[in-house]
């Protein structure tokens, strides 16, 4: 090369791919339940364990979870973290408390935000109850 040039160390090539996702048969029941203010789990066809949110299979047995079970809106905190790091896909104000909650009647915990009490009071084993957003905002597909 005749002239000294700065080396090219980076080029930006935007990538855009659109996808249409399918929640699946059982997850769809759960999502429709949310729209009605219900927490719908699904029981394993073989072992009867109740999954919420159901993802289509009981991974223990590798069979569908086709029996829908409406669950209580109360549960127990299994473990928790206080999140202080921002993320593009999360619209919650920092810091916030995310907890694994075992709903009464469920056999697996689901994640929920604990926003109604100070962080220092949240502990493992604490009983909690679901607090719903205003009904007008119940649209899980577009959150």
């Amino acid at each position: 090369m005749s002239e000294e040039q700065e080396p090219v160390t980076r080029i930006i090539t935007p990538v855009k791919v659109d996808y249409e996702y399918t929640p699946g048969v059982t997850s769809e029941r759960f999502l429709l339940g949310l729209k009605q203010g219900k927490l719908l789990g699904a029981a394993c066809d073989e072992c009867g364990r109740v999954y919420i949110p159901p993802r289509g299979a009981c991974p223990r047995c590798a069979v569908p979870t086709s029996k829908i079970r409406e669950l209580a809106h109360k549960g127990t905190i299994i473990t928790l973290t206080i999140v202080r790091v921002p993320s593009d896909n999360i619209d919650v104000e920092l810091p916030y408390c995310a907890a694994s909650i075992l709903l009464d009647g469920a056999d697996i915990s689901m994640t929920g935000l604990i926003q109604e009490c100070p962080f220092e009071e949240v502990r493992i084993g604490m009983r909690v109850e679901a607090v719903w957003k205003p009904e007008a905002e119940w649209d899980p597909a577009h959150r």
Partner: peptide
């Protein structure tokens, strides 16, 4: 952390998953 429809993300990245 791709924004998935019909799933509300509450913990981000590996740290959010492993901290609990």
């Amino acid at each position: 952390s791709i924004k998935m429809p019909f799933a509300v993300a509450m913990v981000a990245g590996a740290g959010g998953f492993f901290a609990p």
